[in-house]
Design a protein around this nucleic acid. Structure first.
Length: 221
DNA sequence: GTCCAGGGCCTAC
DNA sequence: GTAGGCCATGGA
């Protein structure tokens, strides 16, 4: 068993990457849309789609809840899976507008209730819901993504890479102090780690976790 | 040309 | 309840 508590992992990532505390986006609505569009898609592609939406002054709930799906498809095309994303995003915006009037009102819901509502929408699963809750609604939930699963599996192979979402979420939430900035930054650190070192074809050279990662220890041995 | 990206839904067993 | 297929663009 490798000595790799979440706090030790975070300490090492934080020392390397600095405080990230991030989700790109100027408004809560932009963060919300970004969370939808980044599903299985690189952020660079999402940026192009967001720029298109901004350029047409469409990055608000009122416009997106009335926009023609075909028009939305053309704007978000660079983000991939654009037909289903357009259909789902449009449908969700319509529902939020109808049921809550604004994103702000929706975000007034208590965290568990908000999560339930978000998950009820077609197109929002666990990760997207939690990203929205954490970065847009600013309530502390620990976001799990493919990078987090992959990294944790490599650090400690008793953790399966196909571990259930809520199981790994509980693992972190039961071990990490529940603070908004900390949860935001920890997820950001895992993404940064994933982009640089923890890809399917790993590049462990210079990885800040080499000492505490089972995979890394073998890789650099 | 091949691999990959900050998932989620649907269908079949 | 879960494995497999599908959705699609753009950059490395």
């Amino acid at each position: 068993m490798v000595g790799a508590s979440p706090s030790l992992i975070y300490k090492k990532l934080r020392r390397r990457f600095g405080f990230l505390d991030w989700w790109p986006g100027d408004t809560k609505f932009e963060i919300f849309v970004g969370a939808m569009l980044t599903q299985q898609t690189s952020w660079r592609n999402v940026e192009m789609a967001i720029a298109n939406l901004k350029g047409e002054d469409c990055l608000n709930l009122k416009t997106l809840s009335n926009i023609r799906v075909q028009k939305l498809e053309s704007l978000i095309r660079p983000s991939g899976f654009y037909r289903q994303k357009a259909r789902r995003l449009s449908g969700i915006c319509k529902s939020i507008k109808k049921d809550y009037g604004s994103l702000r009102k929706l975000f007034c819901l208590e965290k568990d209730e908000l999560r339930k509502v978000l998950l009820s929408y077609n197109g929002i699963g666990n990760e997207t819901a939690d990203s929205i809750i954490l970065y847009a609604a600013e309530k502390p939930v620990f976001v799990i993504d493919a990078y987090t699963k992959r990294a944790m599996h490599r650090i400690d192979q008793s953790i399966r890479e196909d571990i259930g979402y809520e199981q790994l979420q509980n693992y972190f939430e039961s071990r990490v102090e529940k603070r908004l900035n900390l949860y935001e930054d920890m997820h950001a650190q895992f993404v940064e780690l994933g982009k640089r070192y923890c890809k399917p074809k790993p590049d462990c050279t210079g990885c800040p976790l080499n000492h505490i990662c089972e995979h890394g220890i073998r890789a650099i041995a």
